[in-house]
Design a protein around this nucleic acid. Sequence first.
DNA 1: GCATACTTGGAAACCGGTGTCAGTGTATGC
DNA 2: GCATACACTGACACCGGTTTCCAAGTATGC
Lengths: 352, 352
Amino acid sequence: MAEQDRASSTAKRAAKPTINDVARLAGVSKKTVSRVINRSTLLNSETRERVERVIAELGYVPNPQARALALRRNFLIGLIHDNPNAQTVLNVQQGILEALQGTEFELVVRPVDRRSPLMIEDVRAFLSRQRLFGVLLLPPISENDVLAELCEELGCRYVRMGSAQLDDPEHLVASNDREAVREATTYLIDQGHSLIALIEGPRGFRSAAERRAGFEQAIEAAGIELPRNFIAEGNYTFESGIAAANRLLDLGPPPTAIFASNDEMAAGVVHAANQRGLSVPENLSVIGFDDTAIAAHIWPPLTTVRWPIIPMARSAALKLVGNASDRAKAAAEPSFFLSSLVRRASVAPPRP
Amino acid sequence: MAEQDRASSTAKRAAKPTINDVARLAGVSKKTVSRVINRSTLLNSETRERVERVIAELGYVPNPQARALALRRNFLIGLIHDNPNAQTVLNVQQGILEALQGTEFELVVRPVDRRSPLMIEDVRAFLSRQRLFGVLLLPPISENDVLAELCEELGCRYVRMGSAQLDDPEHLVASNDREAVREATTYLIDQGHSLIALIEGPRGFRSAAERRAGFEQAIEAAGIELPRNFIAEGNYTFESGIAAANRLLDLGPPPTAIFASNDEMAAGVVHAANQRGLSVPENLSVIGFDDTAIAAHIWPPLTTVRWPIIPMARSAALKLVGNASDRAKAAAEPSFFLSSLVRRASVAPPRP
DNA sequence: GCATACTTGGAAACCGGTGTCAGTGTATGC
DNA sequence: GCATACACTGACACCGGTTTCCAAGTATGC
């Protein structure tokens, strides 16, 4: 019953020419056609031409499912992420697709819920079901070592993106968040600020720890002594930025500058300042991190750290698929990217 | 050479149990295992149990490529889009994935460039190569009839999303943009505005035309006579919103309220107003469209039209995959969604 | 008790490609 | 002129599932 149903529902689809049709019309064997498709060098140019003519005539396109079965691997790259920022995720997708352009690989997206206890099992089911060629892991979930081990266990290639230490260039594409944040904080200090607060990312995230470390290094280097509660925690969302800003601005004395660990939270800080009748940058300087679209689009335009996520994603994807054909090239793909400060209008010297 | 290389590169991957292993260990034939997997009713419950035990023991998962080959269809849904708004695209992905949750379908994303002359050929290559189960088309590219015909021609199921007329409920999920914009414009009129400008979307887009029609209906119903140049064109980006706002605010007299055809452009209007020292909503009222994250995140929070894109995407996906198993259910899936006004803080009566 | 219908399970073909290996035809070496 | 090497091609098995077809077992009707 169910079987019949399924059969009839596919019956209407147009029958496509197969490799057998091509072989028959060209008067050669399947294998020869396969050789033409795969650019084998062991081929008489006359035969190749004849087969190619038939292929063009028929509009033959190899069936990727059959290929995947015979080759015991498919051409799907997975993107596993739980990043809350839409622009970041889309930028990553863009970078990956740039790298995949012209190849036979396609991108399958898989958002997951970091907080779900079933997350790991969910990913396990996904990976064993689909047997992807490989996966890319986006921060913050890329920091989860269990996930990386799961990939190893299931024999699935993977590349992690993030601000982690450069301990494994084959599986990691990273950026120098720590130095970039130090630079940004030093910029605030150079502008004359000494009451500088930090809104950090969630505890347990390497990116959060790296950014905090950069902040603290700069503060320490300047010999500044900060009140303990000048470090607030957020969870990378706009709302958490508002909440953290309100906590900080209620302090006595309040900070004259706030570094938020991503743009989303920085936008929340600007929002909270506006709500309180404080103007940015006159009453409060703000710096964000990421340089996503929102940074340029709010008022005032946000001074922020540009995180080169698109090149990072492209590089990660090349590393992943390059691994298949050209290991050397894949290994040569850069694993480390530099973030840098973008100066816009949300920073000014503190009012005397 | 190349063949050898490929073979060796896959050799390291863990060998997974196949249906043959299960059959052998359970002491039954492949077909019986297949029947268990596919929940066929023609099975002794004792046999089923035995097979299921072996499946669990081995951790057997059917190979989707082999299934796809045998069934002559795969389990991939494509999302073809050229939407400039990250939040919209991600919301759509979220809606689709909610619908696909628990099914064997996966989502493949495919951004395209609407302006490229190769776009159609690009999509054709994509569709004939991958032989997807079906595709979802996002606006604005969903309005391209050539694309829909291409899907028909290639025998690829499709569902279009957009603000188009409800002419084909099997292939379309739409919203009532026109009425929603009329409502929003009427709200501005009720607040006392009569110098109301429109920033419309690009010519040739049905969504742009629908929204403009709603605007004009409201203006006409109120008996307002607008200067011709109170309708400016944008292209749905933040920057085009700034440019259009500057053109409008340079007019004499300038508008006291601006309706922008999406939030991105509305944010640009707010940005431009701030740059000119105008405050929103005191000196200028602004309404957007979409209710994406940016609407709530800029200051002041944007009054906007909520476009129920997530439920629309979910419904579109259900329509697409439901089509396979349960035509009736798919047809029953709603094809029409209501947009409604969300009142925030960017609208106030005009200053006397 | 036997014919019949209905379950249940297996053998073999098939989906559309790729890998292995043997066979043919031509160039080269002696 | 014959043996050998090499380039090219095809027959066939195989990837891991589903489907067709048939046979055997079992329940039911008479």
